[in-house]
């Protein structure tokens, strides 16, 4: 009975929460549902903020067809962690006036958050952050990717970024000569 009562209370709380709509439900391209705090979503994503303000949020799950479930899970995870972390002065100012604020180094938890991701997961997450207009997450993920590029040869970078070398041999030699100094460590 006790357990049932507890469940009932939880049910009640959830209903209240839904009525107050303090969360939004997001649906990934493969149909999985994720719930995220409305406040955090609106604060961290310009796209979601626009959808919430414009009333185009679907209570049964707002379709985000461009984002796979793994990436969306990371997005939601990031939003929750962000909401739970004590926002530092740096983060508050960066979320308010990011466009003019200088870049803020990733915080420790943000660094850990992206460090644990696989290569593919990181690339999917950066695209999701870009799609959702999540400036801070985009910054943190882009920063991580840029760190991965350091000390890599052009060939290695092409491999990491899945880029086809569209220069001819002659053109490449020309560029290398033009930018020869950039290949030295002086």
């Amino acid at each position: 009975m006790e357990v049932d009562k507890g469940k009932g209370e939880a049910e009640e709380t959830r209903k209240v929460a839904e009525a107050d709509r303090d969360t939004v439900t997001l649906k990934s391209s493969d149909g999985k549902l994720f719930e995220v705090s409305k406040e955090a979503a609106a604060r961290l994503s310009t796209v979601l903020a626009g959808m919430i303000a414009g009333g185009s949020i679907d209570d049964n799950g707002t379709d985000l067809k461009q984002i796979g479930s793994e990436a969306l899970e990371n997005v939601v995870d990031y939003c929750n962690k962000h909401a739970n972390s004590i926002p530092s002065a740096a983060l508050i100012s960066s979320s308010i006036s990011f466009n003019t604020a200088p870049f803020k180094e990733p915080e420790e938890w943000e660094r850990k958050f992206v460090d644990r991701l696989s290569h593919d997961a990181l690339f999917d997450l950066v695209e999701a952050a870009n799609f959702l207009g999540m400036e801070r997450l985009l910054d943190v993920t882009c920063h991580k990717i840029s760190e991965m590029m350091k000390g890599k040869s052009p060939d290695q970078i092409r491999e990491v970024f899945n880029i086809k070398n569209d220069y001819t041999k002659e053109e490449l030699e020309e560029i290398r000569q033009e930018l020869a100094w950039a290949f030295y460590d002086d």
Binding site: F103, F123, V126, E127, N130, L138, D139, C142, H143, I145, S146, M149, K150, P154, I157, R158, F161, N162, I163, K164, N165, D166, Y167, L172, I175, R176, L179, A182, F183
Partner: peptide
């Protein structure tokens, strides 16, 4: 599997100037 150019923009903008010049040899 290829990052859109506007994401590449955000990634490359993090790098020091010298690295950027080196990366011009990656692709057009």
């Amino acid at each position: 599997g290829v990052l859109p150019l506007d994401v590449v923009f955000d990634v490359l903008v993090c790098l020091p100037a010298k690295d950027i010049c080196r990366l011009r040899a990656i692709c057009r």
